[in-house]
Amino acid sequence: MTVAIAIPNYLIGTWKVDPAHSEVGFSVRHLMLSKVRGRFTTYDVTIVTTPDPLESLVQATIDLASVDTGNELRDDHLRSADYFETDAYPAMTYRSSGVRRTAEGWIVDGELTLHGVTRRVPLEVEVGGFGPDPFGGYRAGFSATAQLSRREFGIDLDVPLDGGGVAVGDKVTINLEIQAVLEK
C-alpha cells in the first residue's frame, strides 16, 4: 500500500539550480583546532520531482577547479595532486539512487564520485518549500548536509602535527543550499 506524503505546494517536474541563490559548500578541521570553510562556484544540479516524492531524482556535477576558500594559495593547493588533482579529475558528481522519509525529514541516497572513486553518500535533506517567484515561474528550496571521509576517496595526504593529529582532518562536512527553478 502506498502512503501519500504531503508536501505543501509540491510540484512535479524538472528543476535546474539557480546558482545566484544557491551554494555548494564544505568544511573541514584544520590543525585540529578550527574549521576551514569553502565552496564551489561552478556546478550544475538537476532535480526531478515525481508524483511520488520517494521516486524523485537528483544529479549534480561540481567543477572542482572552482573551489573557493577565500585564500588563493590554499585553493591552488586543493586543486593540486595532494587533494583534488583537478587536471586528472576535473569534476565531482552525485547521482541519487533513492529517497526515503525519516522521523527528522528526508534522506536522499546516492553515489558520489570524487577523485576517481565512487562511494555511497546519503544526504540529509530539509525541504524548504515550493512556490511561485516574482518572474512568473516556480521555485523550490532545499538544504542538505552530508559527511564523508576524504581518505575513502583516495585523498589521503596527512601532515602530522608535533603534538599529535594531522593538519587537515579526514571528515569533511558538505553543506548545500539549493534554490531551483522549474523548467518550462
Rank of each mutant, 00 (worst) to 15 (best):
S66G: 09
L78W: 10
L148Q: 08
E55K: 07
L182N: 14
V48C: 02
T118H: 04
E111V: 10
G110W: 14
K171W: 13
R39Y: 04
P53E: 10
G137C: 02
V166L: 09
S56C: 02
S143K: 08
T113G: 02
Y138M: 00
N71H: 15
D156R: 15
R139E: 02
V121I: 08
I7P: 04
A65L: 10
S34N: 13
D170V: 10
V159E: 12
I107A: 04
V28F: 03
P51C: 06
G141D: 07
M1N: 12
T113Y: 00
N71K: 11
L148T: 15
H115S: 11
H30M: 07
Y94W: 07
V58Q: 12
V108F: 10
E183F: 03
G129K: 03
M1P: 13
E23N: 08
S97G: 15
L112R: 05
D63N: 10
E124K: 08
G129W: 05
T69K: 00
P160L: 01
R150C: 11
V121Q: 05
F142P: 00
E126C: 01
F135I: 05
Y43V: 00
V127R: 02
R120I: 06
E177T: 06
S143N: 05
E72H: 02
L11N: 06
F153P: 09
M1A: 11
L57D: 09
T50K: 05
S80H: 12
L112S: 07
Y10P: 02
V24A: 04
E124I: 13
P122D: 12
I155V: 08
P51A: 01
Q147T: 14
L78N: 04
E55A: 03
V172A: 01
A144F: 15
T113Q: 08
A167Y: 00
A60L: 09
E23C: 04
S22K: 01
V48Y: 11
V24E: 07
L157A: 13
L182Q: 11
